[in-house]
Design a protein around this nucleic acid. Sequence first.
DNA 1: GATGAATGAGTATTCATTCAT
DNA 2: AATGAATGAATACTCATTCAT
Lengths: 191, 191, 191, 191
Amino acid sequence: MSPRTQEQYHEIRTEKKARIMQAALEVFSEEGFERASVSKIAGRAGVSKGLMYNYFKNKEELIKTIFIDAMSKLMSSFVGSREMIPTKEEFALFIKKSMADFKNNLPYWKMYFSVMMQANVMQMVNEELMEIAMPVLMMMAKYYESRGVKDPLLHARMLGAALDGIGMNYLVDPEGYPFDKSIDIIIDKLI
Amino acid sequence: MSPRTQEQYHEIRTEKKARIMQAALEVFSEEGFERASVSKIAGRAGVSKGLMYNYFKNKEELIKTIFIDAMSKLMSSFVGSREMIPTKEEFALFIKKSMADFKNNLPYWKMYFSVMMQANVMQMVNEELMEIAMPVLMMMAKYYESRGVKDPLLHARMLGAALDGIGMNYLVDPEGYPFDKSIDIIIDKLI
Amino acid sequence: MSPRTQEQYHEIRTEKKARIMQAALEVFSEEGFERASVSKIAGRAGVSKGLMYNYFKNKEELIKTIFIDAMSKLMSSFVGSREMIPTKEEFALFIKKSMADFKNNLPYWKMYFSVMMQANVMQMVNEELMEIAMPVLMMMAKYYESRGVKDPLLHARMLGAALDGIGMNYLVDPEGYPFDKSIDIIIDKLI
Amino acid sequence: MSPRTQEQYHEIRTEKKARIMQAALEVFSEEGFERASVSKIAGRAGVSKGLMYNYFKNKEELIKTIFIDAMSKLMSSFVGSREMIPTKEEFALFIKKSMADFKNNLPYWKMYFSVMMQANVMQMVNEELMEIAMPVLMMMAKYYESRGVKDPLLHARMLGAALDGIGMNYLVDPEGYPFDKSIDIIIDKLI
DNA sequence: GATGAATGAGTATTCATTCAT
DNA sequence: AATGAATGAATACTCATTCAT
């Protein structure tokens, strides 16, 4: 009724929603989208199944929201840097920083890779993914262009793919795969 | 004793088994392991659900068999070449040939990537995967060693990961991703 | 927080659980454990299959729960009488009363006998069965001891077995078997 | 074609049939009727599933045949002794001999008791059971009559039931239950 | 906003039985 | 007589989703 109550409601909503999304991210990353049960997610979030459906239309909506949420966070970290053409040192630093972010968000990326291959679920998400990937790709391309590379976008895509591959290998075998050293070689040979 | 000869039975079995495996590979690649229903696989193979269980203990056994089958085919293509240290040209050729194979077996690799992230299913298969991956990795490492690279195994793993990444990007977007050109750059810069 | 109070939920749960258990007891007694389908039990209870699994982990758990439930009811009827040494009249009365109970719970005992022979299902239940059978056996043994019988426990076990046999014959042919008269003879000759 | 071939066929038939029945008896006794799979029985008998259906119309027919077969063997052991009225010593000996037979055919009796409680399967068999049980019952009754007991048939049925109970207890716990001593008491007190 | 009881369609798997050979 | 490939109906069980409260 009162504005304060309204605010409280809003606060509750955002807090609960965040808790559910965090729990869902964990469970999705541990068990994959299909195996992750709504019950388990609700339980992990300390919330009833019914409430989940109050916040998210369904399981698919939930994973999409998590994706989009993570993406917009990622996007914001590129704001401002989009236009500039980085020096070699800046570019190297950018890659190192990105890869460090990757290591700090393993559950998210585990979910990301595991879901990316199940096209049907992700059809709608793919466009959103492009929205974040493209500017980064363009920035990489601009860098290559500034270095006089003939086909800068091709180089950019290849670099992105190589980093994807390293990330994936690290996800599959976090103990065994030489993540940081691989990045160093990439930086040394490809930029 | 036998109304059909042993050979006839064997023939029937191998033919049906192959048909089921082919159908399963397709469905797994289209829908992922979890979403692929045994019913659909059986239907696609033109066979009753019951018969599937005559040939494969369960769904997991089925996907494992497909993996192992594909792997042994892959392995056989490395026989003989394991021991030798390739020249740069040979190595480049080897990579091109491998990637062409990859393109020819997209459904298999789609399934491969989609399942690799769901470790639980694949625990037992992982060892078999190593069996095929290791010799290739060692051969790559030997090549780098012969070129005087300090940490040859590290370079080999990084090269493998980069190729993985290119493969994955191609799988997700077969029309848009510049697969062959990416490979050319890899060959140019990394070997 | 709760739209229904904890108590309301509890009430619903106990009522439904009881209804499922009653239906299950009937169906198990009519068809035996293996032949009794979960669908039929749910149908008889006027409940969906899904709900059954909300209350009982699986079919085995269901039958175990019924057993244990019935046993604890039986046990409670022996509280207090365990320690005393009965006179001949008391002992005879006890047997008559027990056998009357038996007749009042035929479905339960039908299930009991039908399952007792399929050891695998009942492994865990057997210990619980002992818990109720032993005190009764000991009381019988004490009676025989008080009457100067040399091997009282042996006599007790034999008496128990004879009563088992009469019960079983009655179960198989409730119309034809002279249950009460058999009990009278047992009482006359064996105690 | 030749009479010798005919005979050989017959020999093969009876030998195979016996082997299947023996295997089936074992498996039924180990796993119960429902859990015993036709495949397992065929495998144990060293025979194909198809052949089983050549000899027995279906699974039910198979268990019925085993029952009836065992019964006619039992019956034949009573031929001759039906009419006479036994002395106390003869009667005691008869019981002891019967119970020894019981111990020698445990698998059969395990199957017998386990199936007896699932009325539906055994409906048709029950009549056959009566055919063997009745003469024995009558003989027992005659014995009691000769000893001046008022209701000899009642006593006979009660004795039969008691022996059933001892048998069943022994089946459930062959190591622990004092089978022979229980029989001695029965003989002492009830005949 | 919040609960959890309730549903029903879906899943993998089993198995008695048939049948072409 | 003998085989075992093939079927299909049945089974236990799961789980996303709904809804009365």
